[in-house]
Design a binder for these strands. Structure first.
Lengths: 195, 195
DNA sequence: CGCGTAGTGGACCGAACGGTCAAGAATTCG
DNA sequence: CGAATTCTTGACCGTTCGGTCCACTACGCG
């Protein structure tokens, strides 16, 4: 052993993530990263590699966390239907002003960076699968019509959620956004016929 | 009068727009703009001002064009319902890989540039109004239930469209995307009860 | 045919960029 | 305590950034 690190890796990654989240990849300079992390250039490079590697690491951590939260929310909510409704109402929260780091990154870099695009593809496939499981559970619980394909429903829900997330970024009125979320939930999560 | 311009302004704006569209604002350098426009720095600055002013001009031109196309499509389609369906299927086209310039710009700059955010807000308000008119026409034509608020329906359709647009950027399978678009259309544009 | 004027293109600028590196500091172990 | 080793710091590098400027060019007009 020798001199130990003077920083907490998780704290640094969180600070760096927030910086990328607020400003995007290109608009974040190494100086920004030094400022928010409190580290010098050398330390940053020694610990995480160059800017792009650091960004990809942050992105992977972000999607892992997100899927963890999603998995837990979908599994722990007593009635699956409520979890699906909450999914659509998530973008109406106040936290949404800066959007979702993965969605922002897909928009900014998906065209130019195949790694980011591939990661985005995998991420949303996983989300679809998780939501699909929850749809199937809601069907078993009698809260959704049994006929529909759970994956197809999940895709529609995910698209609607991402659309709401985007609309919230346009500065759309919070009340209107909330109403639209409820309206979409009502139409995409209909009562089963024989209820 | 004196020496006339040696370039066509529209052509230059189109080339510049495509560059911003492909790469985003921050990732487009003045050298890129010179290359795609064929102009020198001096000419570019004399004709359009600095990079940001040029970008804002391109963005305004883009949204004006988009709304022109939208207005025409919504008005000229014989049955309004078909125009609304087409709206949801637009993101399934092959042109969509680079997304929508306005949406990309909102994601990239909405947090940091109040002018871009304000323009985004106005743009999507206008889109909502245009779609709302078309929804009202579809109701008059008996293709949609008369009860629903046209603006609320328009908001749901716009959100769904933007969500599909985003999903297409994640590299989602074209067939799945298309199926999701049809599924969303079926649920958000239901047959009127007494049909 | 020249004079005035607007347009052009590239040399040039300071600043900021991402990235490297060496010297020094802090720790463990012999 | 000293040697070995890792981490930290900031000076430094070449490049590229957005932006300015000016000598030159090409045209309309008298």
């Amino acid at each position: 052993m020798a001199r130990p690190r003077s920083f907490d890796e998780k704290q640094v990654l969180t600070a760096v993530r927030d910086q990328f989240w607020d400003a995007g990849y290109a608009a974040t300079s190494l100086e920004d990263l030094m400022r928010v992390s409190g580290l010098g250039k050398g330390s940053l490079y020694a610990a995480f590699g160059d800017k792009r590697r650091l960004f990809l690491r942050v992105l992977r951590g972000y999607t892992d966390d997100s899927h963890g939260h999603l998995r837990r929310a979908l599994a722990e909510t007593p009635r699956a239907l409520d979890a699906l409704r909450a999914l659509l109402e998530a973008p109406t929260g106040a936290t949404t002003r800066r959007g979702c780091l993965m969605a922002n990154s897909t928009c900014e870099l998906g065209n130019a960076d195949p790694d980011v695009l591939a990661h985005a593809h995998r991420t949303y496939e996983t989300s679809t699968a998780l939501i699909g499981d929850c749809v199937a559970r809601a069907q078993r619980e009698g809260d959704l019509p049994a006929g529909a394909d759970p994956i197809e429903t999940a895709r529609a829900l995910l698209a609607a959620q991402q659309g709401l997330l985007f609309m919230s970024r346009t500065g759309m009125d919070a009340a209107a956004l909330s109403a639209t979320a409820r309206s979409l939930a009502a139409q995409l999560l209909p009562d089963p016929a024989g209820d």
